[in-house]
Nucleic acid binder design. Structure first.
Length: 294
DNA sequence: GCGTCCAGGTCTACC
DNA sequence: GGTAGACCTGGACGC
Protein backbone atom coordinates (compact mmCIF):
# COMPACT_ATOMS: atom_id res chain seq x y z
CA UNK A 1 0.00 0.00 0.00
CA UNK A 2 1.64 3.24 -1.13
CA UNK A 3 1.90 6.02 1.43
CA UNK A 4 2.18 9.78 0.91
CA UNK A 5 5.12 12.00 1.86
CA UNK A 6 5.36 12.98 5.53
CA UNK A 7 3.47 9.91 6.67
CA UNK A 8 4.52 8.06 9.81
CA UNK A 9 3.01 4.61 10.41
CA UNK A 10 4.02 4.74 14.07
CA UNK A 11 2.70 8.25 14.68
CA UNK A 12 -0.59 7.35 13.01
CA UNK A 13 -1.10 4.14 14.99
CA UNK A 14 -0.42 5.82 18.32
CA UNK A 15 -2.12 9.13 17.48
CA UNK A 16 -4.82 8.35 20.08
CA UNK A 17 -6.35 5.40 21.91
CA UNK A 18 -8.18 3.62 19.07
CA UNK A 19 -5.25 1.24 18.44
CA UNK A 20 -5.98 -0.37 21.83
CA UNK A 21 -9.66 -1.02 21.09
CA UNK A 22 -10.83 -4.06 19.13
CA UNK A 23 -11.04 -4.92 16.32
CA UNK A 24 -7.64 -3.16 16.25
CA UNK A 25 -4.69 -4.76 18.01
CA UNK A 26 -1.01 -3.87 17.97
CA UNK A 27 1.86 -6.31 18.35
CA UNK A 28 4.52 -4.04 19.77
CA UNK A 29 7.32 -6.61 19.31
CA UNK A 30 6.77 -7.06 15.59
CA UNK A 31 5.45 -3.49 15.12
CA UNK A 32 2.33 -4.83 13.50
CA UNK A 33 -1.08 -3.20 13.38
CA UNK A 34 -3.80 -5.78 13.01
CA UNK A 35 -7.45 -5.18 12.27
CA UNK A 36 -10.40 -7.41 11.53
CA UNK A 37 -12.28 -5.92 8.62
CA UNK A 38 -15.65 -7.00 7.36
CA UNK A 39 -15.91 -7.94 3.69
CA UNK A 40 -19.09 -7.37 1.67
CA UNK A 41 -21.44 -10.12 2.75
CA UNK A 42 -20.22 -9.99 6.33
CA UNK A 43 -17.23 -12.37 6.11
CA UNK A 44 -14.43 -11.24 8.46
CA UNK A 45 -10.89 -10.72 7.21
CA UNK A 46 -7.83 -10.26 9.40
CA UNK A 47 -5.32 -7.80 7.96
CA UNK A 48 -1.81 -7.28 9.32
CA UNK A 49 0.06 -4.08 8.48
CA UNK A 50 3.80 -3.41 8.70
CA UNK A 51 5.78 -0.31 7.88
CA UNK A 52 8.30 -0.62 5.02
CA UNK A 53 10.63 2.02 6.44
CA UNK A 54 9.01 4.90 4.68
CA UNK A 55 8.36 3.16 1.38
CA UNK A 56 4.75 2.14 1.98
CA UNK A 57 2.88 -0.40 4.05
CA UNK A 58 2.95 -4.13 3.59
CA UNK A 59 -0.47 -5.56 4.32
CA UNK A 60 -1.20 -9.26 4.45
CA UNK A 61 -4.75 -10.42 3.92
CA UNK A 62 -6.36 -13.88 4.07
CA UNK A 63 -5.36 -16.40 1.45
CA UNK A 64 -8.16 -16.99 -0.98
CA UNK A 65 -9.29 -13.38 -1.07
CA UNK A 66 -10.44 -12.35 -4.52
CA UNK A 67 -9.02 -9.33 -6.31
CA UNK A 68 -12.23 -7.43 -5.55
CA UNK A 69 -11.97 -8.33 -1.87
CA UNK A 70 -8.32 -7.25 -1.77
CA UNK A 71 -9.36 -3.89 -3.20
CA UNK A 72 -12.00 -3.53 -0.48
CA UNK A 73 -9.36 -4.24 2.17
CA UNK A 74 -6.87 -1.78 0.65
CA UNK A 75 -9.56 0.92 0.63
CA UNK A 76 -10.23 0.07 4.29
CA UNK A 77 -6.54 0.35 5.19
CA UNK A 78 -6.24 3.69 3.36
CA UNK A 79 -9.32 5.00 5.20
CA UNK A 80 -8.11 3.91 8.65
CA UNK A 81 -4.61 5.34 8.16
CA UNK A 82 -5.93 8.51 6.44
CA UNK A 83 -3.67 7.92 3.43
CA UNK A 84 -5.85 9.83 0.97
CA UNK A 85 -6.32 12.92 3.11
CA UNK A 86 -4.51 16.10 2.10
CA UNK A 87 -2.21 17.40 4.84
CA UNK A 88 0.17 19.61 2.84
CA UNK A 89 -1.62 22.82 3.90
CA UNK A 90 -1.55 21.69 7.52
CA UNK A 91 2.14 20.84 7.37
CA UNK A 92 2.88 24.17 5.71
CA UNK A 93 1.03 25.91 8.55
CA UNK A 94 3.08 23.94 11.08
CA UNK A 95 6.32 24.91 9.33
CA UNK A 96 5.39 28.57 9.70
CA UNK A 97 5.34 28.19 13.50
CA UNK A 98 8.81 27.53 14.86
CA UNK A 99 7.58 25.48 17.82
CA UNK A 100 5.54 23.16 15.58
CA UNK A 101 8.12 22.33 12.91
CA UNK A 102 8.46 18.91 14.51
CA UNK A 103 4.98 18.02 13.17
CA UNK A 104 5.85 17.75 9.46
CA UNK A 105 9.35 16.55 10.32
CA UNK A 106 7.95 13.53 12.19
CA UNK A 107 5.04 12.89 9.83
CA UNK A 108 2.45 13.65 12.50
CA UNK A 109 -1.14 14.73 11.97
CA UNK A 110 -3.02 11.64 10.83
CA UNK A 111 -5.43 10.36 13.49
CA UNK A 112 -6.19 6.65 13.31
CA UNK A 113 -9.84 5.95 12.60
CA UNK A 114 -12.14 2.98 12.27
CA UNK A 115 -13.29 1.35 9.09
CA UNK A 116 -16.71 2.99 9.44
CA UNK A 117 -18.05 6.25 10.84
CA UNK A 118 -20.65 4.21 12.71
CA UNK A 119 -17.87 2.46 14.64
CA UNK A 120 -16.12 5.77 15.38
CA UNK A 121 -19.31 7.31 16.79
CA UNK A 122 -20.13 4.27 18.93
CA UNK A 123 -16.59 4.20 20.29
CA UNK A 124 -16.68 7.92 21.01
CA UNK A 125 -19.98 7.51 22.90
CA UNK A 126 -18.25 4.85 24.98
CA UNK A 127 -15.44 7.25 25.95
CA UNK A 128 -17.81 9.79 27.51
CA UNK A 129 -18.02 10.24 31.24
CA UNK A 130 -15.96 7.23 32.20
CA UNK A 131 -12.45 5.91 32.65
CA UNK A 132 -10.50 4.50 29.70
CA UNK A 133 -10.64 1.06 31.32
CA UNK A 134 -14.44 1.16 31.19
CA UNK A 135 -14.29 2.20 27.52
CA UNK A 136 -12.16 -0.90 26.88
CA UNK A 137 -14.70 -3.06 28.71
CA UNK A 138 -17.65 -1.68 26.71
CA UNK A 139 -15.96 -1.98 23.30
CA UNK A 140 -14.59 -5.40 24.16
CA UNK A 141 -18.07 -6.60 25.11
CA UNK A 142 -19.64 -5.13 21.97
CA UNK A 143 -17.18 -7.04 19.79
CA UNK A 144 -17.20 -10.37 21.63
CA UNK A 145 -20.96 -10.47 22.21
CA UNK A 146 -22.23 -8.94 18.96
CA UNK A 147 -19.39 -9.20 16.43
CA UNK A 148 -18.42 -12.09 14.16
CA UNK A 149 -15.67 -14.24 15.75
CA UNK A 150 -12.42 -15.11 14.00
CA UNK A 151 -10.44 -18.00 15.53
CA UNK A 152 -7.48 -16.75 17.48
CA UNK A 153 -7.94 -13.12 16.53
CA UNK A 154 -11.07 -11.78 18.22
CA UNK A 155 -14.23 -10.49 16.61
CA UNK A 156 -15.38 -7.89 14.11
CA UNK A 157 -16.98 -4.69 15.32
CA UNK A 158 -20.73 -5.25 15.38
CA UNK A 159 -22.90 -3.82 12.64
CA UNK A 160 -25.61 -1.26 13.35
CA UNK A 161 -28.14 -4.02 12.69
CA UNK A 162 -26.57 -6.30 15.31
CA UNK A 163 -26.69 -3.60 17.99
CA UNK A 164 -30.15 -2.47 16.89
CA UNK A 165 -31.49 -5.99 17.41
CA UNK A 166 -30.56 -5.97 21.11
CA UNK A 167 -32.35 -4.27 23.99
CA UNK A 168 -31.59 -1.45 26.37
CA UNK A 169 -31.36 -3.99 29.18
CA UNK A 170 -28.80 -6.07 27.26
CA UNK A 171 -26.61 -3.05 26.48
CA UNK A 172 -26.88 -1.83 30.04
CA UNK A 173 -26.07 -5.10 31.78
CA UNK A 174 -24.13 -7.25 29.30
CA UNK A 175 -22.17 -4.54 27.51
CA UNK A 176 -21.83 -2.48 30.74
CA UNK A 177 -22.88 0.65 28.87
CA UNK A 178 -24.92 1.89 31.83
CA UNK A 179 -26.95 5.02 31.14
CA UNK A 180 -25.41 5.15 27.60
CA UNK A 181 -27.50 2.10 26.65
CA UNK A 182 -30.53 4.02 25.32
CA UNK A 183 -28.21 6.36 23.37
CA UNK A 184 -26.38 3.46 21.71
CA UNK A 185 -29.61 1.67 20.91
CA UNK A 186 -31.26 4.76 19.41
CA UNK A 187 -28.21 5.54 17.27
CA UNK A 188 -27.83 1.95 16.04
CA UNK A 189 -31.54 1.76 15.18
CA UNK A 190 -31.43 5.08 13.34
CA UNK A 191 -28.44 3.88 11.27
CA UNK A 192 -29.90 0.42 10.66
CA UNK A 193 -33.22 1.99 9.66
CA UNK A 194 -31.54 4.42 7.28
CA UNK A 195 -32.72 7.66 8.87
CA UNK A 196 -29.11 8.51 9.83
CA UNK A 197 -26.36 7.86 7.26
CA UNK A 198 -23.02 8.36 9.02
CA UNK A 199 -20.94 6.92 6.16
CA UNK A 200 -21.99 9.87 4.00
CA UNK A 201 -20.29 12.25 6.43
CA UNK A 202 -16.76 11.27 5.33
CA UNK A 203 -17.38 12.59 1.85
CA UNK A 204 -19.69 15.43 2.90
CA UNK A 205 -18.97 18.83 1.39
CA UNK A 206 -21.28 20.66 3.80
CA UNK A 207 -19.81 23.25 6.20
CA UNK A 208 -18.25 21.83 9.36
CA UNK A 209 -20.85 23.60 11.51
CA UNK A 210 -23.64 21.65 9.79
CA UNK A 211 -21.87 18.34 10.40
CA UNK A 212 -21.33 19.40 14.01
CA UNK A 213 -25.06 20.11 14.43
CA UNK A 214 -25.92 16.74 12.90
CA UNK A 215 -23.57 14.97 15.31
CA UNK A 216 -24.97 16.95 18.25
CA UNK A 217 -28.46 15.82 17.33
CA UNK A 218 -27.44 12.26 18.27
CA UNK A 219 -28.45 11.67 21.88
CA UNK A 220 -25.35 11.25 24.05
CA UNK A 221 -23.07 13.17 21.66
CA UNK A 222 -22.09 16.46 23.26
CA UNK A 223 -19.41 19.02 22.37
CA UNK A 224 -16.52 16.71 23.30
CA UNK A 225 -17.75 13.69 21.33
CA UNK A 226 -18.90 15.73 18.32
CA UNK A 227 -15.59 17.63 18.11
CA UNK A 228 -13.58 14.44 18.22
CA UNK A 229 -15.71 12.61 15.64
CA UNK A 230 -15.29 15.65 13.38
CA UNK A 231 -11.52 15.23 13.60
CA UNK A 232 -11.94 11.65 12.41
CA UNK A 233 -14.01 13.00 9.51
CA UNK A 234 -11.21 15.38 8.53
CA UNK A 235 -12.60 18.57 10.09
CA UNK A 236 -10.39 20.19 12.72
CA UNK A 237 -12.31 23.37 13.61
CA UNK A 238 -13.39 22.18 17.07
CA UNK A 239 -11.02 21.43 19.95
CA UNK A 240 -13.13 18.81 21.81
CA UNK A 241 -11.80 19.66 25.25
CA UNK A 242 -12.13 17.04 27.97
CA UNK A 243 -10.78 16.83 31.51
CA UNK A 244 -7.48 15.26 30.42
CA UNK A 245 -6.92 18.00 27.80
CA UNK A 246 -7.69 20.73 30.34
CA UNK A 247 -5.16 19.27 32.76
CA UNK A 248 -2.50 18.75 30.08
CA UNK A 249 -2.92 22.27 28.67
CA UNK A 250 -2.60 23.70 32.15
CA UNK A 251 0.62 21.71 32.76
CA UNK A 252 2.18 22.76 29.44
CA UNK A 253 1.08 26.38 29.15
CA UNK A 254 -0.02 27.58 32.60
CA UNK A 255 2.44 25.95 34.97
CA UNK A 256 -0.37 23.81 36.41
CA UNK A 257 -2.76 26.68 37.09
CA UNK A 258 -6.48 26.21 36.39
CA UNK A 259 -7.56 27.43 32.96
CA UNK A 260 -10.96 28.07 31.38
CA UNK A 261 -12.08 26.42 28.15
CA UNK A 262 -12.47 29.88 26.63
CA UNK A 263 -8.80 30.61 27.34
CA UNK A 264 -7.77 27.33 25.72
CA UNK A 265 -9.87 28.10 22.66
CA UNK A 266 -8.33 31.55 22.40
CA UNK A 267 -4.83 30.05 22.54
CA UNK A 268 -5.44 27.96 19.41
CA UNK A 269 -7.51 30.51 17.45
CA UNK A 270 -4.50 31.62 15.37
CA UNK A 271 -4.34 28.13 13.84
CA UNK A 272 -7.64 28.65 12.00
CA UNK A 273 -9.35 25.59 10.59
CA UNK A 274 -6.48 23.35 11.77
CA UNK A 275 -6.74 24.43 15.42
CA UNK A 276 -8.23 21.15 16.64
CA UNK A 277 -5.27 19.24 15.23
CA UNK A 278 -2.64 21.65 16.57
CA UNK A 279 -4.40 21.40 19.93
CA UNK A 280 -4.29 17.60 20.02
CA UNK A 281 -0.71 17.27 18.77
CA UNK A 282 0.46 19.95 21.18
CA UNK A 283 -1.02 18.08 24.16
CA UNK A 284 0.16 14.62 23.11
CA UNK A 285 3.64 15.53 21.87
CA UNK A 286 5.45 13.91 24.77
CA UNK A 287 3.63 10.57 24.28
CA UNK A 288 6.18 9.64 21.64
CA UNK A 289 9.09 10.29 23.99
CA UNK A 290 7.94 8.18 26.91
CA UNK A 291 4.58 6.51 26.48
CA UNK A 292 4.39 4.38 23.37
CA UNK A 293 6.19 1.06 22.96
CA UNK A 294 8.00 1.59 19.63
C1' DG B 1 -14.21 -7.46 52.13
C1' DC B 2 -17.30 -3.79 52.51
C1' DG B 3 -19.06 0.90 52.24
C1' DT B 4 -18.34 5.63 50.76
C1' DC B 5 -16.79 9.10 47.78
C1' DC B 6 -15.30 10.99 43.48
C1' DA B 7 -14.35 11.70 38.48
C1' DG B 8 -15.89 11.52 33.97
C1' DG B 9 -19.46 14.15 29.60
C1' DT B 10 -24.23 14.80 28.53
C1' DC B 11 -29.11 15.55 29.24
C1' DT B 12 -33.01 17.70 31.32
C1' DA B 13 -35.39 20.72 34.24
C1' DC B 14 -35.36 24.93 36.17
C1' DC B 15 -34.27 29.82 36.94
C1' DG C 1 -28.34 31.49 28.28
C1' DG C 2 -26.58 29.61 32.42
C1' DT C 3 -26.67 26.17 36.13
C1' DA C 4 -27.72 22.16 39.20
C1' DG C 5 -28.62 17.53 39.61
C1' DA C 6 -29.05 12.93 37.75
C1' DC C 7 -27.19 9.29 35.05
C1' DC C 8 -23.66 4.70 35.84
C1' DT C 9 -19.35 2.66 36.56
C1' DG C 10 -14.72 1.71 38.26
C1' DG C 11 -11.21 3.00 41.17
C1' DA C 12 -9.33 5.03 45.31
C1' DC C 13 -9.68 5.21 49.98
C1' DG C 14 -10.82 4.31 54.87
C1' DC C 15 -12.38 1.12 58.07
Amino acid sequence: VATPARFSFRRTIYSHGWYALPPFTVDHQTRTLRRIFELPGGRPAVVEMHDRNGSGITASCPSGATAAERNVLIRGIRACLRLDEEFSEFHAAALSHHEYRWIPRTGSGRLLRSATVFEDVVKMLCTTNCSWSLTEVMIGNLCTKLGVPVDGYGCTFPTAEAIAATSEKFLRKEIRAGYRAPYLLAFARAVAGGSVRPESWRSATVPTAELYDELRSIKGVGPYAAGNVLKLLGHYDYLAIDSWCRKRFSEIHRNGRKVSDRAIEKWYEPFGRWRGLFFWLDLTRDWYKRKIPF
